[in-house]
Amino acid sequence: MNSNHLAATIAKKIIILIISVLVLSMITFAMSRLAPGDPLVSYYGDRVERMSPEEHANAIERLGLDGPMTQQYADWFKAALQGDYGISFKYKQPVMTVISGRLINTLLLGGTGFILTFLFALLIAVLCAFREGSLMDRIICKVGTITSCIPEFWLALVLILLFSVTWHLLPSSGAYALGEAGNLGSRLEHLILPLAVVVLSHLWYYAYMLRNKLLEEIRQEYVLLSRAKGLSRRSVMWKHCVRNLMPTMISIMAISINHILGGTYIVEMVFSYPGIGTLSFESAKYHDYNMLMILVIITGIIVIAGNMLGEIVSERIDRRMGSTERLEDLIERDKSEEVKHHA
């Protein structure tokens, strides 16, 4: 019975995921085809102007740019089902070939950043909740408000200015030193600054959010009871409050994927880190719509799937967490420090 229920929930979520991705692909497809710029120019460059009418027509047909838009979408969709997502206009390669090498870089940077952010956020939240209203708590909250106002790209610039330009400690761009792709040390060294920006620019916002949730938690009556029974503050906090916070935290984590991924993209662009954030920026610059479309869809899949995973996990932990809509509304009201998408 129980596992049936779970299977049904998961099946329902997967159907919603598929529908969402379909709609997303339609929106992005329609938008990229409505673009005023000529994608042929980005593929062939200036040669387009010297093409004969037949060559021009051939090129349009080859890139799948002929026929009415619904027909184009149907063709694109049929090819996509077979794993053919079109050719990057800029790289002249199938988009998946270009993306596959870079996706892992982004997942490494974003994933590590994500985990570290929430690890530190929880620690800070617990620290603040222990000493609510103390000087330290107030300083941390104030610092949080200030750092939440620092745009990611500018934080990255300042760190580069300090650590790369002034002190020559860390490299400022790329994922590894020239010709040292396999060198783990070099890779780690190149990861420090981008990772620091990803974590620092999101840490305070989520720490503050978790702190507020934890403060709500310690106002519950069971805390008073446990204290009256003689449990120490520390064990009440870690064994009861933090445990009760977990479903909320997982939901917050699920919703935050969007912001942290967005932040990772910006950080990648500033550090020229070879991930899909940098790629999306390049494709925008060169009007490489095929590529941009897939990147938007991949991002959408990561975010939507992450959200659903979060929902399932927190529902497994706590059955009362039925509607995440309520939680999202709560978080929106709580959004004192964002973006992020934001941004």
């Binding site: 969402s20 709609v23 997303l24 929106i27 992005t28 938008m31 990229s32 409505l34 673009a35 005023p36 969007n258 912001h259 991924l261 967005g262 932040g263 993209y265 910006i266 999306s280 920026f281 494709s283 925008a284 610059k285 009007h287 719509y289 941009l292 990147l295 938007v296 991002t299 959408g300 975010v303 939507i304 959200n307 973006v339 992020k340 998408h341 934001h342 941004a343």
Partner: peptide, 18 residues
């Protein structure tokens, strides 16, 4: 669905198109 795309990526996409 639109909210699931990081806002900057969405803006970059629209900016590239328009």
């Amino acid at each position: 669905i639109l909210l699931s795309i990081p806002s900057l990526l969405l803006i970059i996409f629209v900016q590239a198109v328009i």
